[in-house]
């Protein structure tokens, strides 16, 4: 019965309703509807209506703002800090990660410290750097570095530990020169780990950055949402919150997913899907747990 029903071509309204694109567009509409209902029935003074928030957002998009900087300036300032901080984290993390991967004592010496630093909440980074450096660019950038480095280190370390020995052996048997082995075997095999570091380090650096801007800066996206909060403008806070969500989606779907699809085009389709839909942190968590377990194994067995 069910098979027969499924194989019959559906009428067009049913087809549209069943389409996954419809589902995707339906979600924000449902949220808006629920929000509107809550606004009408809860009658709290503070919950702004969707219309009010959307009109605030529209003003911001047109660069008509009461805040010190426009939407674009705020996000540009933050993005600039994020990139600078993360590049530094990448450079330092790469060196330390490689050293840990290649020299056992260095690994033992630093591993626990790295795991502890990874667990430091970004709030802690923001508050401490805020007290140490005061207002300015330093605290946010150092926060990004501090948050990003352990991600880079752990992933580079994983990458080195997982280097494909059998492919190096193969290259050796065919007398392939070292430079070509580095380019065609070593670097591509490190790519997934490098990319993971990039993606999750960047996402977490971003979270830390906006916090640091709240406590130790006078501009940027984090500072601006705090500005609306302090001004008790609920529509400002909610509007900016939605900008954050949009920014995250654009970064994730528009940049990282595309780059990942290109970089990993050699992966069979099934695997690719897993990579695409895998969740940043859950994945890294698994990787970190694996790393911890492997380290433990090396100790006991």
């Amino acid at each position: 019965m069910a098979v027969a029903a499924a194989s019959r071509p559906a009428a067009w309204p049913a087809r549209i309703i069943r389409s996954r694109r419809t589902a995707r567009f339906l979600f924000p509409l449902v949220v808006l509807a629920v929000w509107q209902l809550a606004f009408m029935f809860l009658e709290t003074a503070v919950l702004p209506s969707p219309g009010k928030v959307l009109s605030f957002m529209w003003d911001e998009v047109r660069m008509d703002t009461l805040s010190r900087h426009t939407l674009y300036q705020s996000f540009a300032i933050s993005l600039g800090r994020l990139i600078v901080g993360f590049l530094i984290a990448l450079a330092i993390g790469l060196v330390i990660g490689l050293l840990m991967g290649l020299v056992r004592p260095i690994e033992y010496f630093l591993y626990d410290v790295v795991v502890v630093v990874l667990a430091v909440p970004s709030l802690v980074w923001a508050l401490i750097t805020g007290l140490l450096f005061g207002l300015g660019n330093n605290a946010p950038i150092v926060t990004v570095i501090g948050v990003g480095i352990p991600f880079v280190i752990l992933n580079v370390l994983e990458g080195v530990k997982n280097s494909p020995k059998e492919l190096f052996d193969m290259s050796r048997a065919f007398r392939v020169p070292r430079r070509r082995v580095v380019r065609h075997v070593l670097l591509p095999s490190l790519m997934p780990f490098f990319f993971a570091a990039l993606r999750y380090g960047f996402a977490n650096g971003w979270k830390g950055l906006v916090l640091a801007e709240v406590f130790a800066s006078t501009n940027g996206a984090g500072w601006t949402i705090r500005y609306w909060y302090d001004a008790h403008r609920a529509q400002g806070v909610l509007g900016y919150a939605l900008f954050f969500v949009l920014f995250a989606l654009i970064l994730e779907r528009g940049v990282f997913e595309r780059v990942s699809r290109y970089v990993f085009r050699w992966r069979p389709q099934a695997q690719l899907e897993v990579v695409e839909e895998a969740v940043p942190e859950a994945k890294l968590k698994v990787a970190t747990v694996e790393a911890e377990r492997m380290a433990a194994d090396r100790g006991t067995g």
Binding site: M170, H184, P188, S189, W266, R267
Partner: peptide, 9 residues
């Protein structure tokens, strides 16, 4: 014994 190809090439 196993192919040992570079999966990314």
């Amino acid at each position: 014994q196993s192919p040992r190809l570079l999966p990314w090439r």
